[in-house]
Simulated assay, not measured.
Amino acid sequence: MELTQDYRALDARYYMPAFSRTMKIVRGKGARVWDAEGREYIDCVAGIAVCSTGHCHPAVVKAICDQAHDLIHCSNLYYVPHQAEFAEKIVEISGLDGGKTFFSNSGAEANEGAIKLARLATGKKKFVSFTHGFHGRTLGSLAVTHKPAIREPFEPLEPKCTFIDYGDVEALKRAVDEDTAGVFVEAIQGEAGVLPAPRGFFEEIREICEKKGALMIADEVQTGMGRTGRWFAYQHTGVAPDIITMAKGIASGFPMGALVAREGLEFKKSEHGSTFAGGPLACAAGRATVRVIEEILPSIPTKAERFAAGLAAHNPRVFGLMIGVTVGERCAEAAAYCAEHGVLVNCAADGNLRLVPPLVITDEEIDTAVGVINEALR
Rank of each mutant, 00 (worst) to 15 (best):
R21P: 02
M23E: 13
R27Q: 14
D43T: 08
I48Y: 12
I48D: 02
V50F: 01
C51F: 12
S52D: 03
K62A: 15
K62L: 14
N76Y: 15
E85R: 15
F86W: 14
E88V: 10
E88W: 12
V91H: 09
V91Y: 13
N111T: 03
L117E: 03
V128D: 08
S129D: 09
R137Y: 07
K147H: 12
P156D: 13
R174F: 04
D179Y: 00
F184Y: 15
A187W: 04
Q189W: 01
R199T: 03
L215E: 00
Y234T: 04
V239P: 01
T245E: 06
T245W: 08
G257W: 05
G257K: 06
V260T: 05
E263D: 12
G264I: 07
A285S: 12
T302L: 14
G320T: 07
L321T: 04
M322S: 06
V325T: 04
T326Q: 10
V327T: 09
G328V: 14
R330G: 00
C331H: 09
A335I: 00
E340H: 08
V343C: 01
N346K: 09
G351C: 12
N352M: 07
N352A: 07
V356C: 08
P357K: 07
D363W: 03
G371F: 11
N374A: 05
A376D: 03
A376H: 04
